[in-house]
Amino acid sequence: MIAFICILLTIIVYYLSKLLYKKVRFALLSPLLVAPCILSTMLVGFQIDYSDYDGGGRWLSNLLQPAVVGFAVPLYKFRKVMKKYAKIIAISMTAGVTIAIISSGLFSHIVHLQDSYLLSLLPRSITTPIAMAVSVDIGGMPTMTAIFVIVTGITGLILGPMVIRYLHIKEKLAKGLLLGMGAHGAGTSKALEFGSEEGAAASLAMVLAAIFTLVFAPLLTPLILL
């Protein structure tokens, strides 16, 4: 019963925050930031355990799986564009993945984070299940990685459009790649707001980022720990 109420509550809060965002269009009021704030305040206020909440929340999280499968649709529709720019996509993604891993490590060193947190931060820019798998592989803490992934998603969702504006990124492909590489599924949902071609590029970026990180992270980790 409580699980059902939690699902319903999450959906209601989500729709209300979406309405708010549509009205004000202010990046910091993204539903992905507002709704979790409201919900966690409610959980604390009503003294509901997270594990009880997640009994319902899990059903919603699980829908992320068919959503990822659904990315096949934009990828299929824009397959010709993707094929035409295959080389550019490969170069951009290699650069993005390498920078994601190295910069996470470098900035962690700069702020003096201990190695266990540093390692959990390295795979943070890819989709959760694979990020957690990479985290285990390189010796991080998968649950912390899951948190870093979601914070990356929120950050990218808010900052992505600003980066696009200030750098005058005009090409649809570049916009999509940047969003999908920088902020996995959350960035991809933003890219879909720009248009379906940007969405397709972001879906591809998300999938490639995950696969590339799987390969690159274990190779780059020893270098970062030096």
């Binding site: 989500y14 992905l32 929340g57």
Partner: peptide, 11 residues
């Protein structure tokens, strides 16, 4: 899709 990320953000 953002809806499906919310429970993990609440975590």
């Amino acid at each position: 899709m953002l809806l499906f990320f919310i429970p993990s953000a609440v975590a």
